[in-house]
Design a binder for these strands. Structure first.
Lengths: 339, 339
DNA sequence: CTACAAATTGACAACGTTGTCATTTATTGC
DNA sequence: GCAATAAATGACAACGTTGTCAATTTGTAG
């Protein structure tokens, strides 16, 4: 029915193995033959049978991706990885994964043993899950962790630089003249929270600004967290002129709270987020934030995985990529203290 | 290396074909044999080789999903379909698709001809794309449209009932005593916009309320749309007491605008959205909205597709499922006119 | 007990590619 | 021009399952 490699071989007057060589860009085919075969392929509209190929090679050309459904920035990871997967000609099998859930574990086991994925990509916080690590080591499937919660261990990862991003953002606020900068710190068991916090402190130190504990609020990275933390830091007389909310959702909560209090943004108080989620541009004013190079991160992750699969890499790389400042309307010059 | 069907056959003392029958739950195996084979499978830890199976059957057991990346409610569709795909033991290959983009078209062609997907699911607005329809008819691959923009044609679909949802929501506002209800209508080339509008009007008529054109704003389904439309309807003296914003994002914009104007929600004006997106519960107050049964819709869609693939269905079904009212803080009783 | 149908089982081909290895052809060094 | 080497090519097995069909066993009606 469909055109097979045999039809091409017949049309090109050569063996099926030679056609296979041409299709897979292998060496040891003369230019003349290659051209003849290519012509036959084009004329017949031959498309290699993917089932046969995977069967013969016992490789799935498929990568599994674990996503945390409630997750932080799942959307950005997923769309990037789909894109990159297409470019590398790998199938992407995403699965939502809740650490320690029986059903999630079954799904992962199915990916590995039934679907026979060639490699696995984790997004936070799936890299923390015991079961994931155990399955990976047991099966020997190459793993790359994307933005891992936990950077310890030999396992490879590609991650955005939360420290650098937070420092850069804080620096931006200082460049605008702010000297009183509040920071909303996320959960302390997230490496990202801690890294961002350290970035904030590093910038303060570099600018010789005093660190004031009452302007650092422990909160969640969500709307309510930002809302409540804003209420807290804006209570007294001694208010900050800028709020680095730690995440975009949190910044949104801050915007809402400030609006409620009749405080103008950025006229009286500047607000900044982190992550550049879609919502960050959709508020008014738009939220100044740090964009992590999702596409780049995922590209490097997939690249690493594919190299390991093709034995071009030992798979021990650990990469950290810088973020980028996205300036929007929510930050502005510090108000004139006299005004 | 790995355990194959031959190993099981040897252990169970039967032919490989009999093992195959047991594995695939086919008839014509005696109970005794079935038990013996099952025991061997369990003891050896046999897992069928998916490559060989797909190769022999020339079926991918894979469904393609076209998602509009900027899209409306992509997230909800995707996580549902991954879930359902797992349950049906089908692989899900999602692709972001921008109508009329060359690259998107290449991706779709690749899904069909290289990946050889067994069926295709479209999410709005991909069901409108000429190329999609052409590829589907040409290749004969079964298609199900989920929440199609366009319900015309014989192609099967499973859709939420926007009309019923909007009517129900409007009815809810009327039950709270509102007689002056604004409606923000989305783009008129979206069936959903139109259906929701008709639902709104139907409810008004049933409640014998006057339809007032100046309270219907043509806007976009996003934050800015809701913000601007709110500014418009709240301009004059003759203000509505409730706003049905047409979508959650739009409702968020409305909340923001009302807050700016110092109008209390729901004390002075009630606000309602549509879709129950994650953000709807994260604002303050939470947005009363209509939740479409995403999981259910997708389940029926996949179910239909699988039935067609197994020749249990002709694939002409068109299903419409009702939504559900989600009550949150943004709607309340109409304020006392005397107050 | 016989004839026939139904249930059960197995032998073997087929699916379309890639991997291995042998063979043929071209190229190089002397 | 000859041997040695490298490049090009092809024959054929292997991958592990399912589909087809024939063979065998069991059950049933008369």
């Amino acid at each position: 029915m469909a055109v097979t490699i045999k039809d091409v071989a017949r049309a090109a007057g050569c063996s099926i193995k030679t056609v296979s060589r041409v299709v897979n860009d292998e060496p040891y085919v003369s230019e003349a033959t290659r051209a003849r075969v290519q012509k036959a392929i084009d004329e017949l509209g031959y498309v290699p049978n993917i089932f046969a190929r995977r069967f013969a090679q016992q490789r799935s050309y498929t990568l599994g991706v674990l996503l945390h459904s409630g997750g932080y920035n799942q959307q950005a990871w997923l769309s990037s990885i789909l894109e990159i997967g297409y470019e590398y000609n790998y199938d992407i099998l995403p699965q939502s994964y809740f650490p320690a859930y029986k059903k999630s574990q079954q799904k992962l086991a199915s990916l590995i043993h039934e679907r026979r994925i060639d490699g696995l990509v984790t997004t936070p916080p799936c890299d923390l899950d015991e079961f994931v690590l155990q399955q990976v080591t047991q099966s020997g499937i190459p793993l790359v962790r994307v933005n891992p919660y936990d950077r310890s261990g030999d396992l490879p990862y590609v991650s955005g630089d939360d420290f650098q991003g937070a420092r850069m953002l804080t620096q931006h606020l200082m460049d605008l003249g702010h000297r009183r900068i509040a920071f909303f710190r996320g959960p302390l068991n997230h490496r990202m929270s801690v890294d961002r916090f350290h970035g904030y402190r590093a910038a303060l130190e570099e600018g010789r600004l005093e660190y004031r504990a009452e302007w650092v609020q422990d909160s969640l990275f969500n709307f309510d967290g930002g809302y409540n933390a804003t209420r807290m830091v804006m209570r007294g007389e001694d208010r900050p002129t800028a709020i680095f909310a730690g995440s975009d959702e949190s910044a949104q909560g801050a915007l809402f709270a400030l609006r409620e209090m009749g405080i103008e943004v950025p006229g009286e108080v500047s607000v900044a987020g982190f992550d550049d989620m879609p919502l960050a541009g959709n508020t008014w004013p738009g939220i100044t934030t740090v964009q992590m190079p999702y596409r780049n991160i995922v590209e490097q992750a997939v690249n690493l995985l594919v190299d390991v699969l093709n034995k071009k890499d030992s798979g021990l790389q650990q990469v950290i990529l810088p973020g980028r400042l996205i300036l929007r309307g929510s930050t502005g010059p510090v108000p004139d203290p006299q005004g």
